[in-house]
Design a protein around this nucleic acid. Sequence first.
DNA 1: GCCCTCACTGGGATTCGGTCTCAATCCGCC
DNA 2: GGCGGATTGAGACCGAATCCCAGTGAGGGC
Lengths: 158, 158
Amino acid sequence: MRAVGPKREDLEALHEEVRDRLRSADQLFTTGRRRLVELLAEVGRPVTIPQLIAADSGVALSSAYRNMAVLEQVGVVARIVSSGEHARFELTEAVMGHHHHHLICSTCGRVDDFTVPDDVEQAIEDALAEVATDSDFLASSHRLDLVGTCVGCASTSG
Amino acid sequence: MRAVGPKREDLEALHEEVRDRLRSADQLFTTGRRRLVELLAEVGRPVTIPQLIAADSGVALSSAYRNMAVLEQVGVVARIVSSGEHARFELTEAVMGHHHHHLICSTCGRVDDFTVPDDVEQAIEDALAEVATDSDFLASSHRLDLVGTCVGCASTSG
DNA sequence: GCCCTCACTGGGATTCGGTCTCAATCCGCC
DNA sequence: GGCGGATTGAGACCGAATCCCAGTGAGGGC
Ligand SMILES: [Mn+2]
Ligand SMILES: [Mn+2]
Ligand SMILES: [Zn+2]
Ligand SMILES: [Zn+2]
């Protein structure tokens, strides 16, 4: 169930959604953009542009960055900057339909998804709502990251 | 009580701690490094190097970055990268002695601190411990950010 | 306090992720 | 198929951060 691409009909629905979102922003759903969305859906984890290019050499650097910006603009893609290295991109929660958080390996930069139980999520949201009120802050989302060392890096560095 | 610099004896203790940490890494506690620590303690909020230079024109760009890296190495300073703009720096929880989280303004990049009630913090830690176990991930810390718009940006943009 | 040595400093060159430019190409539409 | 405007992509460009190295300062030995 892990690291396997989405089922066929899910991918179709995803493309439909992306097409609609692009259209309402007067943007075309070109093959290049379709490919980016497909790659992101396939990988199922935040990836860098160089990684995408390595996975599909048909992707051009400048176009990839430009299209990621467009897809970000219309709410299809989220940009993750956690370190000074390459930014990473993933499909948004709005498009994927589930809220999650990130395991971040501070050694290799790898990012994986995880979720916490609903009651914990709720407790967090309640606490944050109060913080926002107290600080006159207009909250739009929260981020919960677990930082450490991934399996690969742990075994490598022995 | 807010935005006011630390009391005198706290600052002394802080310098003591920083000196020790630098010494055990065979690093000198130079005036430049002392000044960085003082500035960070004074501001009490994650700031960029350009901001530090604006606040104290005696700080040199390359030295500031190099010393921040050194101070980061010895656990005195934490680097925060949240966006593609300038990184921000703050004194670590290890040195300041209290755990906290960040309010991040996605408009101007400003970062402020906040805390959540102990029981929520505990619930988060428990949940994350379980996630780490299930994922074979060696967790070293967590991050909880509230992303949105700060008061200043909210009033400015109408 | 005064040297001597060696780490530190800082201005500028350099790196490098990401953006911008613009002519060639593709897309949607007729 | 043909037209007009959006998109593409190779490379120029930008800017945050690092690197280099000659000049400076810190601190141990005296
Ligand atoms: Mn994710
Ligand atoms: Mn902070
Ligand atoms: Zn790793
Ligand atoms: Zn703001």
